[in-house]
Simulated assay, not measured.
Amino acid sequence: MKGKTCCVTGHRDLPQNEINKIKAALEHEIDAAVTDGFTCFMSGFADGVDQYFAELVLERKQTNPALELIAVIPYSKRLDSLNKKTRTHELLEACADVVVIQEKYLPSVYSHRNRYMVEHSDRVIAVYDGRETGGTAKTIRFTHRMKKELREIPVGEIVLPDYLKPKTK
């Protein structure tokens, strides 16, 4: 990987009525990254945000051949299943590199993949709905610990827990 690198994290289960807004925000963040000198982009290729991100980066590569997309796949059988689908197979074929984190599935494979992407990135784009658990929340916390730049795209309505809500009289 040469040049500045940017990766993405985000939810798989997005509200249907938010997808166009999310894609537009991802386009904006990718374009901003390119303007800021980023040429390498990494996606974990999960359903949802990761694949939208991969598609948008590859669209931009058509007019900017300096851009490259790297697929970071958690384990070998996941790569096999992605290659069985025409859409994801074509995306993977267009990648500059495909990194497989480990051979076999273990419950920790996704967190290892996310850590790899954050460790090898200068900027992380997070599509995040505010939930406190799950891979996206853990990846955001890891991004902060690594002191990497975080660009957040909020999704849906953020519901505050009662103890954080403003007091009313």
Results as ranks from 00 to 15, higher is better:
64 N>F: 07
40 C>M: 00
82 L>Q: 06
77 K>E: 15
152 E>H: 01
52 Y>W: 13
52 Y>H: 13
72 V>D: 01
148 K>Y: 03
113 R>M: 15
60 R>T: 10
120 H>Q: 15
33 A>F: 08
44 G>H: 08
53 F>A: 04
10 G>S: 02
48 G>I: 14
66 A>W: 03
115 R>H: 13
17 N>Q: 13
156 G>T: 11
163 Y>F: 13
62 Q>A: 14
41 F>T: 01
85 K>I: 01
70 I>C: 07
103 E>P: 06
163 Y>G: 04
73 I>K: 00
74 P>A: 03
93 E>F: 02
124 V>N: 04
58 L>H: 04
8 V>F: 03
41 F>L: 02
15 P>N: 10
43 S>A: 13
99 V>E: 07
146 M>H: 11
104 K>Q: 08
164 L>K: 08
108 S>G: 02
124 V>S: 03
46 A>P: 01
98 V>E: 11
76 S>L: 03
107 P>M: 08
55 E>K: 14
123 R>M: 08
112 H>C: 06
6 C>H: 06
102 Q>F: 00
147 K>L: 09
135 G>D: 09
42 M>Y: 00
117 M>S: 02
68 E>S: 09
82 L>H: 03
17 N>T: 10
11 H>Q: 13
120 H>N: 15
3 G>Q: 12
69 L>N: 08
82 L>D: 01
119 E>M: 11
140 I>C: 00
